[in-house]
Simulated assay, not measured.
Amino acid sequence: MTVTLERPAAVYPRYTERMADTTIKVDRAVRDRLLELARERGMTMRDLVAELAGATPTQDELRARYEATKAYVEEHFLGRPYTEEDEAAGEKAWADVAAGRLGEIQ
């Protein structure tokens, strides 16, 4: 389905000078889902996609967040370097919480 929008000549050139449009081809189901999500939030699909992109960290951002968190834990909680044993204990604690075994966490 092709939709043609007519914009006043006075508005459209100013708009295109500031915005770079890109077409993203997705399945109809994905398009419909994005439209539904955007409508529920009272925004355009363009704004929704921008929000999703802004809220999704890159691998580099995730690594930087991990390193910052690790440094904070070492300084404020451990007083020593964070080890693989600490990580394994943390993973076990989360698994226990998820399984409802709160009393077994040390």
Rank of each mutant, 00 (worst) to 15 (best):
T2R: 07
T2F: 03
V3R: 08
V3H: 09
V3I: 13
V3D: 14
T4V: 15
L5A: 10
L5M: 10
E6W: 03
A9V: 12
A9P: 05
Y12A: 10
P13T: 04
P13D: 05
Y15G: 00
Y15D: 07
Y15M: 01
Y15Q: 03
T16C: 15
E17M: 06
M19A: 08
A20N: 10
T23V: 13
I24W: 06
I24V: 14
K25T: 11
V26M: 09
V30K: 01
D32R: 01
D32K: 03
R33M: 00
L34H: 05
E36F: 00
E36Q: 05
A38Y: 00
A38V: 08
A38N: 00
A38R: 01
A38P: 00
R39E: 14
R41K: 11
R41N: 04
R41P: 01
G42Q: 12
T44S: 11
M45I: 12
R46G: 05
L48G: 05
V49S: 03
V49H: 02
A50Y: 09
E51T: 12
E51H: 05
L52Y: 13
A53T: 14
G54V: 13
A55R: 15
T56K: 04
T56V: 13
T56F: 10
P57Y: 03
P57S: 02
T58H: 02
Q59T: 04
A64V: 03
Y66M: 08
A71V: 03
Y72T: 01
E74R: 07
H76T: 13
H76C: 12
F77K: 08
F77H: 06
L78S: 00
G79F: 08
R80L: 02
Y82D: 06
Y82R: 01
Y82L: 07
E85Y: 15
D86Y: 07
A88Y: 02
A88G: 06
A88E: 14
A89R: 08
A89M: 05
G90N: 11
G90L: 14
E91D: 12
K92G: 09
W94D: 09
A95F: 04
D96G: 00
V97G: 09
G100F: 06
R101M: 09
R101T: 12
R101E: 14
E104T: 14
E104L: 11
